[in-house]
Design a protein around this nucleic acid. Structure first.
Lengths: 151, 151
DNA sequence: CTTATTGCAAACGTTTTGCACGTTT
DNA sequence: AAACGTGCAAAACGTTTGCAATAAG
């Protein structure tokens, strides 16, 4: 999904958020946010950690900080995650509109889609069950067009 | 979801499956299948292990066998699983028609639903993306009616 | 100078694996 | 007898935590 908000805007909002929670603005937190913003896609905490190590070798960073920051960013709705069972989670930049995922089991690629009808129907279901929805996920697993083409 | 196939039928199919794969019919494998069939609901491997230990104290059983058998049963589409991120998976008897889940984050209860419109729409999406669907999951998370009532 | 944050390593919970022993065929 | 399955304990995996050292406000 393409980002429509500029990074400067994001960063300003992030700084404000930190201030409002009496949290501190650190190099590590900024870089984690920046890496996710810059590299559009879905990444595991390990991948984000590796990307930063590679792009900013001088910065000291531990994997624990990546996890802690991702939790922080997800709570603030700045990133969102998609779960892969035992194999962990992938995070993506999340100040875009809601969408669901097509996950290719061959190459691991994740495509995104949004379907209004499905969203509406989910609302209907929660009404029927008198259920208060806080979140929902939908994943379609299979083989992507590229992998199908490859045979 | 209520089972419409008798246990005897299931068991016969399971035995055939094992034979066809040159696998052996063991007490452990039978009990794991039986426990999931008997106790309608969604269980973690640990819960299944505990249930068997409780119901059949004389049978020797290790947790590894539970995991191994659940994988086997899931590959054979006899059970299905629903993932809870780091907190593991829950398994349910799966020779019923497909359904999705409403997961209560307060009490952990899982309700099931089936919606034809959503299913159809998913097909449409895969067509649009030229994607070959092998499986799909949809989970709606939130608070169930019982927990809402409790305040 | 106070408070939050960090990296590190150890701990965690779930799942998988290697292996010698048992069971099924 | 051959082949597969088992329990056990150890390892693996992603993630979280305690803590002393460090950086931000």
């Amino acid at each position: 999904m393409t980002n429509t908000i500029s990074y400067d805007e994001i960063l300003e909002n992030f700084k404000k958020l930190l201030k409002s929670k009496n949290l501190k603005y650190t190099t590590q937190r900024e870089l984690i946010l920046k890496i996710i913003y810059d590299n559009n896609g879905h990444f595991t905490p390990e991948e984000i950690y590796a990307l930063i190590k590679e792009s900013y070798p001088k910065v000291k960073l531990g994997i624990a900080t990546v996890y802690r920051t991702l939790t922080l960013l997800e709570d603030a709705n700045i990133v969102t995650s998609i779960s892969f069972g035992t194999q962990g989670k992938k995070y993506e930049f999340g100040i875009t509109h809601h969408h669901d995922h097509l996950v290719c089991l061959k190459c691991g690629k994740i495509e995104e889609f949004y379907d209004d009808l499905i969203e509406k129907q989910q609302e209907e279901i929660t009404k029927k069950f008198n259920f208060k929805m806080s979140d929902h996920v939908m994943k379609i697993m299979g083989t992507c067009s590229a992998c199908l083409a490859k045979g």
